[in-house]
Nucleic acid binder design. Structure first.
Length: 149
RNA sequence: CGAGUCGGCCGGGCGACCGCGGCGGGCCCACGAGGCCCGUCGAGGAAAGUCCGGACUCCACAGGGCAGGGUGGUUGCCAACAGCAACCCGGGGUGACCCGCGGGACAGUGCCACAGAGAACAGACCGCCACCGGGUUCGCCCGGUGGUGAGGGUGAAACGGUGGUGUAAGAGACCACCAGCGUCCUGGGUGACCAGGACGGCUCGGUAAACCCCACCCGGAGCAAGGUCAAGAAGGCCGGUCCGCGAGGACCGGCCGCGCAGGUCGUCCGAGGGCUGCCCGCCCGAGACCUGCGGGUAGACCGCUGGAGCCCGCCGGCGACGGCGGGCCGAGAUGGAUGGUCGCCACCCACGGGACCGCGAGGGCCCGUGGGGACAGGAUCCGGCUUACAGGCCGACUCGUCCG
């Protein structure tokens, strides 16, 4: 079964080596209203035009989690659901690179309605980099302590 | 073949990889209702607007009056409806068909812009006619008084139409026919109503998505309904002022609620509630109120998806629909799953090329490149209505033309 993905991707586009995106499972999501309030009020914040990322480091030993806020300002139900689905796909691989115990809340703004998945991914990376949480270089271990103050 | 009317249906298909939510099963375990694997199911015709009608849940359930809301041709269908079907009436179209918030305007009240002389028991501007006075080229002209709703002009609408009698000129003033109104009779229809006849008085607007009248119907709140368990014993919300860049904090006042303490009223004389609002009346009924002090929780599960259910066949009915038989199980989330990245095919639109048909404008076919695919997503569940929608399919019927 290991040979199947490589052949499939190889036929389509050999240059595109990106790992297949996945959707957030329920365990990795923030669901309780109190947790949302905590992250939005106490966490650090980095805003882009299309979305705002709040991050809060906790001492609880568990994988990093994420929650979504897509308000009515973004659009009707179909548009809101499309935006949150794209964000869920984009969030999963990025979440694995974060230090354990990190809680993330991503708020979508109105311009997110017309954005593509690629654009939203760029916004996410930029916001995470501003928070010192980017997974590409710079070392996540060095960024983690800065969250607490 | 062209133009058109009505009804029904679809809402791209197949595949690859990686995923998400529910249910069922198996395995593992450092047991945490954690991990892995398999099977299965997983948005719409409108899921939408939340406009009607129900199911369901809780509260209430002697009744009456007033107020309030809804419906409005008839007969059916339906659990019910403001829905659907057939029919009736009125209007439109050559026609198939379409449109109608379709009870009552002799119960009463109100309103009818602009134009016009006059608009609701109407109205003399011009005109017509008579009389009086004056003038006269003897045709008539000018002024006044009165008659007249036939003619002109205005309007959506001018108080019936045509012909005659009549008259100074006219007028349903009178007569005939027609139209319209009312009453009665006969026949047909379950009925709305239709057809025919007789008589009557003589014409007697519109508006009830204006008040109103008539007939019929209507308890209130809603799944955040409601229930179980756990946790916790006290705060929550609203308004104002002040402080702070801000998140927020402090103080004061009001409302709801729990515990403790004190007080007042009350269970023969009824505190306080309930019966949609008010009044009468009825029922439940032992607590209610005031002051002071103290300073919370808000999570899980049930409800929760098998139902006026869907598909097929037969029978009854013009039809909506109903009956019988057989088969099927097709979402149940809860910061809210059904997606992401692609490939192929089909469809539509541009551009380019090729051969073909046609005198021609042009037409379809094949290939290549590029682009496009709407309106829109459950949140207790059904039946409707309304609104949005790229593109496409099927059937019935009408009118016109050509061929036979």
């Amino acid at each position: 079964m290991e040979a199947v993905p490589s052949s499939c991707l190889g036929r389509a586009a050999p240059a595109r080596a990106a790992p297949p995106p996945t959707v957030l499972p329920r365990a990795l999501r923030i669901t309780r209203p109190q947790d949302f309030r905590l992250v939005l009020r106490r966490g650090r914040r980095a805003g882009r035009r299309r979305l705002v990322v709040h991050a809060l480091a906790t001492s609880i030993p568990r994988p990093a989690r994420a929650g979504l806020v897509v308000g009515r300002g973004v659009g009707p139900a179909v548009v809101r659901h499309r935006v949150s689905r794209r964000l869920r796909h984009l969030l999963r691989p990025r979440l694995e690179a974060l230090p354990p115990g990190t809680d993330l809340v991503v708020r979508a703004q109105a311009p997110a309605a017309d954005a593509t998945s690629v654009e939203l991914g760029e916004d996410l990376d930029a916001a995470l980099a501003r928070l010192g949480l980017d997974h590409h270089g710079s070392g996540s271990s060095a960024a983690a302590p800065r969250l607490t103050d």
